[in-house]
């Protein structure tokens, strides 16, 4: 069982390039369709929990599924499998890249891909803004957060803490004053 967990998550970690969300369909095929460890609904439940909780999404998924199947040892097996290859590959590249860094051609290649990387960081800003369903009344939250971090050097840690405290306080307030606030109660932020 532990070995199966390790192997499955090894595959998921090794053959998905480009971050956690690319892993979702591959993970689902592996743990739902092939291994039948979870039903599709359970998979979706774990997915939403892993997205909500802090940390790396793929590792959270590995924790959920490992925990369910094999308790603490299952968690270790799934996570170890998931991150083994990525860490090995990165270490290999990190060590060898230092040898080529001063090569003129390598520097030219990186001069080309740096603006591309920045653009790829800018893309999820707009995509996630849509998914988070930001309205005119909540637009100030990301804008003020970004300005505090960008211009005033405030640590994102404080911004996240403020969001947690603010969210809990506002949630308590609106629960008291408007009865129940459903997850679709978007109009409540006014």
């Amino acid at each position: 069982m532990y070995w199966d967990l390790f192997v499955s998550f090894w595959k998921i970690g090794t053959f998905t390039i480009g971050g956690g969300y690319v892993m979702i369909p591959i993970m689902e095929r592996e743990v739902v369709d092939r291994r039948k460890w979870l039903s599709h609904e359970e998979f979706l439940d774990n997915l939403s929990l892993s997205q909500a909780m802090p940390g790396v999404f793929a590792v959270n998924m590995a924790t959920c599924i490992g925990h369910r199947l094999g308790g603490f040892r299952g968690v270790i097996a799934a996570i170890a499998g998931n991150i083994l290859m990525p860490i090995t590959i990165i270490l290999f590249l990190a060590i060898s890249f230092r040898l080529f860094r001063d090569n003129v051609f390598v520097e030219h290649v990186f001069m080309g891909l740096r603006p591309a990387v920045v653009a790829l960081i800018a893309t999820p800003v707009f995509r996630m803004a849509k998914q988070a369903r930001i309205t005119w009344s909540t637009l100030w939250i990301p804008v003020v957060s970004a300005l505090l971090i960008w211009l005033f050097g405030v640590s994102p840690v404080w911004v996240i803490l403020a969001a947690i405290v603010g969210g809990l306080l506002y949630g308590t307030y609106s629960a008291k004053h408007k009865g129940s606030v459903s997850s679709e109660g978007k109009g409540s932020v006014e």
């Binding site: 800018a122 988070a132 909540t138 939250i141 969001a163 969210g167 949630g171 609106s174 606030v181 997850s183």
Partner: peptide, 20 residues
Amino acid sequence: PVVDMMFRILRITVVGLIAA
């Protein structure tokens, strides 16, 4: 609903973090 609101505000705030 309180936990739900917290996660909703967090999702919105993270957009600002990445923008920064």
